[in-house]
């Protein structure tokens, strides 16, 4: 599905994309953004599900189970804490805008 060279291009383009996205971020958002990017690599959950899904014996199933467990923690935890932080930013932002006007 993904040939070696095509994958190399994907790596390259995705790398530049990540760099571009971050380069214009104000310092105040660094922590939420780190948390947000931490959430995004929670996509490892998909891989973990496949790894467990293709497991054929108990050893592989056990390791795959750990993989899904950890990945689900990454994805859910990353989302919850990021959302909580950004929620506060939103409300204080509104107040800020209100006071400036």
């Amino acid at each position: 599905m993904i040939e070696g060279l095509a994958a190399l291009y994907i790596f390259m383009l995705a790398g530049f994309t990540g760099y571009e996205i971050i380069s214009k971020v104000p310092v105040i958002l660094h922590t939420p953004l780190m948390s947000g990017s931490n959430f995004v690599h929670g996509i490892v959950l998909v891989g973990a599900m496949i790894a467990l899904g293709i497991a054929e014996n108990p050893t592989q199933q056990a390791i795959g189970f750990v993989a899904v467990l950890l990945a689900a923690g990454n994805a859910v935890g990353g989302y919850v804490v990021t959302e909580r932080m950004l929620e506060m930013f939103k409300s204080s932002n509104k107040k800020d805008a209100g006071e400036k006007k």
């Binding site: 790596f11 995705a14 790398g15 994309t17 660094h30 953004l33 990017s37 995004v40 996509i43 490892v44």
Partner: peptide
């Protein structure tokens, strides 16, 4: 899995810059 490649690499480079 392309979704993992893209999301992972984006975080990898964004995280490095951060």
């Amino acid at each position: 899995n392309a979704a993992m490649i893209i999301a992972g690499t984006v975080v990898g480079s964004a995280g490095s810059l951060l």
